[in-house]
């Protein structure tokens, strides 16, 4: 596996990138993991437990052996297992604090059995639940990271509450997982494809994008979007799609990722496309030079999982070509950063 130079963040891939590949005939976990390795898209390997592992959160002993075998024989390094806290499991109520703890704890144990050093949960996991999970994380040697995904930003109240808890607990076993969806500079072309396919007028997509890019908090822009889209004749499902543009793409300044350190346990290299241009390859939606600078300045040496998500909107691009292009871009940017004295 090609690695970045020592002292830099390491690269990797999450199988979430292969969501469409997984559905193709003849595909199984071994073939997806094997292809990531064969294409040198490691060394880190992340997967979403509920996506890749049938029977999760209760894998059999035989399945655990089998999955460990697949990973070991690939030569990849398990980086993170994305798990879920399904608080809204049952209609009409949320899981209680005890149920939520148990729901996550069994998955942290599963991650340990599979050999993953980090798990990912969402912001619905409260600071109190995380604090209760801390002794288990410590005992198993598995970190628990809360993903900071659009529409969250560093200024969101739940993020501030988490940061307060992590500072107070002063532990390496709990932390954040920055996801680059929260700090985007442009709406991806793939979204335009999906809007066209959903019959949304290009002028409406353009209007939504102008509102998205205008100054101010995204949360405050929903009423204007809904009113103007309805006036232009958009159907309720189309308005839902337009609102998704606001929630899936955050506009935080990437420099502000620095404020999450030193509590960062893993990074999601979310992206929607790296394209060749006159100045070489670049990502129109995510400012990777800025992200690479912040991660190196902060002395981050964990994994960046390449997380291709354009598949949620379009199958126009080849996922393996995209992962290759992003890996090459990231390696070049990370290795070009001036060394930071530590």
């Amino acid at each position: 596996m090609t690695d970045t130079a020592p002292g830099l963040p390491r690269l990797g891939t999450t199988l979430f990138s292969l969501t469409l590949e997984q559905r193709k005939p003849g595909r199984d976990l071994a073939s997806l993991v094997g292809e990531i390795a064969a294409r040198d898209l490691g060394p880190g390997l992340e997967m979403v437990a509920f996506q890749s592992l049938r029977g999760w959160p209760h894998p059999s002993e035989e399945q655990v052996r089998e999955v460990r075998g697949v990973i070991e024989s690939s030569g990849l390094t398990p980086s993170c297992l994305a798990i879920n806290n399904d608080l809204g499991l049952y209609p009409g109520r949320l899981l209680s604090a005890d149920e939520s703890y148990e729901y996550v704890a069994v998955q942290v144990r599963g991650a340990a059995a599979l050999g993953f050093p980090v798990t990912r949960v969402g912001v619905e996991t409260s600071p109190a639940t995380l604090e209760r999970l801390l002794p288990l994380a410590e005992e198993l040697g598995v970190k628990i990271g809360v993903e900071i995904h659009a529409p969250l930003t560093v200024d969101a109240p739940p993020v501030a509450a988490l940061k307060e808890a992590f500072v107070r607990l002063d532990t390496p076993w709990l932390g954040f997982i920055p996801d680059m969806s929260a700090s985007m500079r442009a709406v991806p072309e793939a979204v335009h494809d999906a809007h066209r396919a959903a019959g949304i007028a290009p002028e409406l997509t353009a209007l939504t994008e102008r509102l998205w890019a205008s100054p101010g908090l995204t949360a405050d822009k929903f009423p204007e979007l809904e009113a103007r889209a309805a006036e232009a004749g958009a159907t309720p499902p189309q308005i839902g799609n337009l609102k998704m543009l606001f929630t899936m793409h955050g506009r935080m300044d990437p420099d502000r990722w620095a404020e999450f350190f030193p509590h960062v346990v893993h990074v999601h290299g979310k992206f929607y496309g790296v394209f060749d241009g006159p100045d070489g390859a670049s990502d129109p939606s995510i400012d990777w030079p800025a992200v690479a600078r912040v991660l190196v300045e902060q002395g981050y040496t964990g994994f960046i999982s390449s997380e291709y998500e354009a598949h949620a909107y379009s199958d126009r691009w080849n996922v393996f070509d995209q992962l290759r292009a992003q890996h090459d871009l990231l390696k070049r940017l990370l290795e070009a950063q001036p060394a930071v004295a530590r």
């Binding site: 806290n85 399904d86 608080l87 809204g88 499991l89 209609p91 619905e124």
Partner: peptide, 20 residues
């Protein structure tokens, strides 16, 4: 599909993801 880990609004209602 009710998405049990994406809670929306002040009442924390699971997102309903439609497909037609």
């Amino acid at each position: 599909l009710s998405i049990p880990y994406i809670l929306t609004g002040p009442d924390r209602v699971p997102l309903l993801a439609p497909s037609s």
